[in-house]
Nucleic acid binder design. Structure first.
Length: 316
DNA sequence: ACCATTTGACCCTA
DNA sequence: TAGGGTCAAATGGT
């Protein structure tokens, strides 16, 4: 399966057009988000329905961008099966063949065409002392011994990769023996129907629905490309979380790099789902996700009535 | 029988 | 060419 662009175009031109499409989609989503804010400020049945439609538009942009980010600049794309029926990469099940090696067969060419290494951007890291359920259904597809690492790395893809074309993957690696610590690297956002389960997990916890959520950011110094981020809105991290970006760019910070999201902000389930997918356990613990290329941390904390204590903790 | 995991092979990127 | 991400046949569990 090729890029979004006509195959007869040179690679760099196709790449440029793909970039253009991505920019247009991002802008479209921003406009839809702004429209959503306007509707959420209005009152009445009509505006409620309109807001619902705008939410659908935003989600369409988001899932399309996820697909495009999966394609990225690769010459060969990884579009989901749902829109590319018949691709040998996405036929859902391996086609049983003779015992003949795939070498020198057409099958080998097919495999080569569908194989592309995933890009490292749009990935985020979560360290955790245990392997909690993050609310998504994962299927393990590989394990590798990693050079200079004590423990093997495990590879997981979304269970709905084939039936819904969901491109989300994660890698899990134990990084500490005692105390136990696991590093999970997520790549790609879920576009499957299971998407809401993670945020549901958090928001279903008694007492969480009526409490605020604190988003804390800090540049942990591991970034290579953007070492001096004074305005968190400029961080490439937030290009993955446009609705959060919109919210914090229109609201005052509680203190440096701390933003409070209250239930009144109309930034509940749908808007926070991407973030919570990464840190759903924040309802009981403080967990962070780290944007891999920029080195920016985002911490999501349920605040309850202890806002001052939480802020003091992060400022210390 | 069906589905998930294991594991060696394959193949891409740096 | 080494390292590591993915594939897919073999295997195991229900």
């Amino acid at each position: 399966m090729k890029s979004c662009c006509p195959e007869n175009l040179p690679y760099n031109q196709r790449k440029a057009i793909d970039e253009l499409i991505r920019d247009k989609l991002i802008r479209g989503r921003e406009f839809a988000n702004q429209l959503k804010v306007i509707f959420s400020d209005s009152i009445g049945d009509g505006s409620a329905r309109a807001e619902d439609l705008v939410v659908k538009v935003v989600n369409t942009f988001t899932s399309t961008l996820s697909i495009l980010n999966g394609v990225e600049s690769d010459e060969v794309s990884q579009f989901p099966a749902s829109i590319h029926v018949g691709s040998p990469c996405y036929d859902g099940r391996k086609s049983e063949d003779s015992g003949e090696s795939i070498r020198s067969t057409s099958k080998m060419r097919d495999r080569r065409e569908c194989y592309k290494r995933r890009k490292a951007s749009h990935s985020w890291i979560k360290d955790s002392p245990d392997l909690q359920d993050d609310g998504h259904a994962w299927r393990k597809y590989g394990q590798k011994v990693i050079l200079n690492a004590k423990f093997p790395r495990n590879y997981f893809r979304c269970t709905h990769k084939f039936d819904q074309g969901c491109q989300a993957t994660k890698q899990v690696q134990r990084i500490e023996e005692e105390p136990p610590m696991y590093r999970t690297t997520y790549s790609g956002h879920h576009t499957c129907k299971n998407l809401l389960r993670a945020s549901q997990l958090m928001l279903d916890v008694p007492g969480v629905t009526d409490s605020s959520i604190l988003l804390s950011f800090n540049d942990n110094g591991h970034g290579h490309h953007h070492d001096n981020i004074t305005n968190i809105c400029d961080s490439p991290f937030l290009s993955s979380f446009q609705s959060i970006k919109h919210h914090i760019s229109h609201n005052e910070s509680y203190s440096s790099h701390h933003y409070l999201v209250s239930p009144d902000d109309h930034l509940s389930k749908l808007d926070l789902e991407d973030v919570i997918c990464g840190v759903h356990s924040s309802c009981t613990n403080n967990s962070s996700i780290t944007h891999q290329s920029s080195g920016v941390d985002m911490i999501v904390t349920s605040v309850d009535s202890h806002l001052d204590e939480v802020l003091a903790y992060f400022d210390s």
